[in-house]
Amino acid sequence: MRILHQYLSEFGQAFLLLVRSLRHLPSLPRQMGRVIEQCYLIGYTTFPIVAILSFFIGSVLALQTGYSLQTFGAVDFIGTIVGLSMARELGPVMAAILLAGRVGSAISAELASMKVYQEVDALITMNIPPERMLVLPRLIAVLLMMPVLAIVAIIIGWLGGAVVASQVSFIGLDPRIYFDGITNFVAFKDVLDGLIKAQIFGFSVILISCHVGLQTRGGPREIGNSVTRAVVLSLIAILFLDYFITQALL
């Protein structure tokens, strides 16, 4: 009960941070350099790991469904199953989890370190709100990059599924049938839902990581604790939001 209360207040504070950051939206045009820098970190450097992991997720998905469906002689449906699961669920969730692990942790570490070494205090004495300089560019960057990461995750997941479905001997599904299963039964709305999901996940991950980083108090040891907390809170938020967004988008 106390833990729940703690998490809820954590998310509430993160939301307040969002509100404070959005007040600085008018400064955005002047901060495009920072936005691009963050885009580079959030999008470009995260892209390879997202690509590799979603390829394997798609492969495993095809392998599992293929193994189960061959019993019914229904391997033709692998494309549809992999297509829908990657688009609606696994693509966005995988991209968001990797974002939390790779970027969220780095952000919380960076901001925690800035807090511990009084860089944040220095900003405050300079009348530069940390929300404006440290939080807003990251939030904007994740909004720009998350759909790219998610569509990459989805498409590469599909490809991974296709490779397994056609190459594994007991499935042996013609890639054309596999992709027909995707194009006929996966609507663009499914992909769009996935992108919306990814957007919300990614945004939450970055917001939570910023919040946890800026909340850090104490010495350098707290930096590590903050990273752990940021990742844990991000994962909780992803899974928690996943359920409700899925329900809302159904």
Binding site: I154, I182, T183, F188, K189, V191
Partner: peptide, 8 residues
Amino acid sequence: VAQSLSTG
């Protein structure tokens, strides 16, 4: 993707 899927 939008163009390839059935309801682009």
